[in-house]
Amino acid sequence: MTVKFEEGIETEIEVRDLNLWYSDNHALKNISIEIPEKCITAFIGPSGCGKSTFIRCLNRMNDLITNCRTEGKVLVKGENIYEKEVDVVNLRKRVGMVFQKPNPFPMSIYENIAYGPRIHGERNKKKLDQIVEETLRSAALWDEVSDRLNSPALDLSGGQQQRLCIARTLAVKPEIILLDEPCSALDPISTSKIEDLMMKLKNNYTIVIVTHNMQQAARVSDYTAYFLLGELIEFGTARQIFEMPREKSTEDYITGRFG
């Protein structure tokens, strides 16, 4: 499905006829969508509609699931990531992901951030210190943790942990950030902090978020896609989707008649 983006906005990810099966379960059906750069695109829909499965196709996290089969194309900056010769490890470096449940490693705050850059070859301590500070600042967490970088990340609150996970993702310098229901385990205050953060990050990154919270999608997203039973039902600007949905089922869902 294509939508006319605002002036000057290019397509970052283009999906063409994507189908996905878990064994015999046809979980995604002929998905075609163009996701704009440096915007927030939200995927909404009831549980089991395939929105999480779909976002996990964008950095090939579904490869980890046995008996999961994909057909179709996902072009990131014009390059099909499902091509055989694609380096999946490098792809995931470019397309970072934040998960539903905050999952910092059982290490210190500092080590959590330094983990990625270090594995990708950064050995210089000064440089690492700088990355840690920069990313924690970008994730709006620096002021809360700058005095205890060496304490365990798991001592942080859920919301802080999630921002730490975002910082950890930023540390490997991705171009795209995928967020899979990042606030579903968080309280409203932490949620609003993450939302503010997303608004700030979209200046530099393309952001895709899956959310079951329609208010959240309405608040933060520039473009919104509505999924139902493995199909992309409607895609448009957030304003259009929430104010004048074209499809009956979209309207039913956003007005809370089911879901």
Partner: peptide, 22 residues
């Protein structure tokens, strides 16, 4: 927990590095 593995892999870390470091 699976979450630790996924977090590491999503950072563009190989499976073996994930096993060793996490």
């Amino acid at each position: 927990p699976k979450g630790f593995r996924e977090a590491s892999l999503a950072l563009g870390v190989t499976k073996w590095q994930t096993i060793r470091k996490v």
